[in-house]
Design a protein around this nucleic acid. Structure first.
Lengths: 191, 191, 191, 191
DNA sequence: TATGAATGAGACTTCATTCAT
DNA sequence: TATGAATGAAGTCTCATTCAT
């Protein structure tokens, strides 16, 4: 007879929100953003269409939330010391983490690459993505500069491209991609 | 007013088809596939909606045609001798061509990456793309084997990833991407 | 903590009901009936959506209650003697009261006119409104008859229209409407 | 085999547009704006839902078009000489026209009053309505000034209110409203 | 009494595709 | 060949109302 407590509501909200985000991520990654309707998300999550709008204002807000959360997680592992400089050990750690995360969250990474390739979706998260890219590029450049590379910026861009390229292939074809070998090969190149 | 000859008709058909494909490519690349309606293509091309269906059975067929044509072009430059083996000179040529083409046909390349990231679209061209990838991978592997690399397949995959990664960045941000420097850097790595 | 008495409960009920009705009236009048959701009423009133359904069966019942209460109030001022006849003094009083009430309860009057103009809403309160109109028309007709007017019914209708028309304008544009002047002008016409 | 001519298309478009506007007007007036769905309009007009969007961008645009057309018509009869001044004869003509038009286009007039009473709808046509009101008020004020009235503006507002009030009653209850008598009574008052 | 999560019907709108001309 | 009116399925979103707590 007494209503649920504030905390109970909070728990319900948190878990439902997670459920929706997880379901949406899976569907977006496997079927595509536009091909995934709100109805399908609801059905897969075992809830009603309307409930989704109780938690998110729009379909766009769902993908935005997913991407933003993912980017925030990335920032967290990038530069463990938060000093903006990567030591040789940290760059190895960085590369290893990158592969570990990609392997663990394949769905997210598929979505991550997806976003770049869909102009209307990209617009939604552009600024935050841009931050991520600029910041990681700057860190890599600093690293190569301190390592005495001749053209540190080009080197940083190259490594960035290499990581994105391998990520891209990994995500597209996870069964056949020789993650370990490629990882070792890259580490050997840079450490 | 003599009636048009068979050949004149054929020429009209060809040029209209080109017009539609070019317009569609531009719009797909800049606005996204799903965000580009048949109406918009027609309007931009200065023709009627109906006419498009005179030349293509569906929207899917349009993107399919664009991608297939592009892939065919690629096959043509891959292995000039058609002998399935890349010499050191040919690999340099290959890399240079790659960048030249990308730079020239940015729209197509944007679409190329797009396709991978949209499952329903990917399905349309999957087999042909797969051919392209397998074939180029095989060629690079052969090359590295003949060059005496320890693990030629991994090396081939790495180069493939590197080229896709740089392509990806180039396409996303063509103004700021240091094409020449990156190209030289890659050629130095492999030749 | 003695349990609340029956009467205290009743008081709470009454004041909550008032709160809901007042909030709803304000929103209906300023934003429109259809544009005002139950959620908005609850939020503005600082209570929960569910509670509203504890006091009213439906959104329709809310507007019905508001209008019916308003009409009952009107009946009360119409014919102070309850004798069904208006003297010249009473008609002046009637007109003055009309303007005073309108000016005081602008929101209600906006809603009053609104109701007429929204068929599905009108249906809800039609019969009670009809009573009000018939009864006031009859009273005015009686008055004009006893004043010796040639065509008392037409005169009554005209005065009714005039009052509704001024009410309408007043409600639409309360800042610029010269209430006093118009009131004097009408009283001069009829007294 | 040849496509329709430009003119044929134009005719189709004109007549379909009329059909949609007429159907919408009737439904809006009898059932209310919000209670009339696009589906209902389409069904009543015997066309598909989608076609309506071929002619109007939104439901709002439909009502906007109806009201704007109506207002433009009104402007046309207001001041036949276009000199901005109403003579005694013209004011009689004006009043007579007003009733004639109202009687003829009851649906439009119902919608006209409706608009004022639905804030979200009013916003759509506010400025044009405001023009109409200001301009007719100015004209009436001029008239009463030239007739030597003591307070011409108040008199103009009063006549305006009277006409709106009678219009309102007429529209609400066309069967029982004694149009002719009321009209004569008003004309006698002012001419 | 009081809460707000949950539902589901139904609204508006878009757009690939068809078809009469 | 060429046009654009017409269709209808499907998508996003809103909101009155219910219900477990």
């Amino acid at each position: 007879m007494t209503p649920r407590t504030e905390q109970q509501f909070e728990e319900i909200r948190e878990s439902k929100k997670r459920l929706i985000l997880d379901t949406a991520l899976e569907l977006f990654a496997t079927e595509g953003y536009y091909h995934t309707s709100i109805s399908k998300i609801a059905e897969r999550a075992g809830i009603s269409k309307g409930l989704i709008y109780n938690y998110f204002e729009s379909k766009e807000e769902i993908i935005k939330t997913i991407i933003h959360k993912g980017i925030d997680d990335l920032f967290r592992i990038f530069d463990p010391n938060k000093d903006g400089v990567l030591t040789k050990d940290e760059i190895r750690f960085f590369i290893e983490q990158m592969f570990a995360i990609m392997h663990r969250d394949l769905h997210f990474w598929k979505l991550y690459f997806m976003v770049f390739m869909q102009p209307p979706v990209l617009k939604l998260v552009e600024s935050r993505l841009s931050d991520l890219i600029q910041s990681s590029l700057a860190m890599l450049t600093n690293h190569f500069k301190s390592e005495g590379y001749e053209d540190p910026r080009t080197e940083a861009i190259l490594l960035g491209a290499l990581l994105d390229g391998t990520g891209f292939h990994l995500v597209m074809n996870p069964e056949d991609f020789p993650v370990e070998k490629i990882k070792e090969r890259i580490i050997k190149m840079y450490c």
